[in-house]
Amino acid sequence: MEVVKKYSEPELVQLLRQRSSHVFSYLYDNYSGALHSVILNIVNEEELANDVLQEVFVKIWRQIESYDSSKGRLFTWMLNIARNASIDTVRSKGYQNSRQNRELTEDVYTAGGTSEMRTDQIGLKKLVYSLREEYKVLVELSYFQGYTQDEIAKMLNIPLGTVKTRLRTALIQLREIIKP
């Protein structure tokens, strides 16, 4: 995709607040792929991920006033919106039901030919899955599934302090991997 004009982040935010459809389109063209990949990491299901992506861009559009540039970059803010929306979707009743149904049918038809894709092979999850198992599971549960460290400690039956320490070590390792 060819991008004629490159907007700086403050320009982008200002023009979005001025309700420019042109800049919304620019934002979508430039960031939908990155956000889509994160959503797929969490939602795992393409149809649903598309819905979440749409919901995320509506939220970005409608909540741009609440973005505070002193707290971080625009992308970080959008990424967190995408992560939260994805986790909310996964935790919703409807998603849980459809997943159970699908698991039942998958037993019958085997794994091939379903709409589920190997979303652990893309984006951030691919990096996380390259970490050692003990780190991987913690990041999976906390980042991709949204559990608190307390909940994780109980689920895995390990001390909260250990969860904290390992998780932070895992994140430092992640940082080193994505460092340019």
């Binding site: 889509h36 992308f75 940082r175």
Partner: peptide, 21 residues
Amino acid sequence: FEAALEQHALAAAVTPPFQIK
């Protein structure tokens, strides 16, 4: 870290179906 995360995410982008836009 934010910038690195953004760069990685942009590099790992998965283009969504055009109907969404």
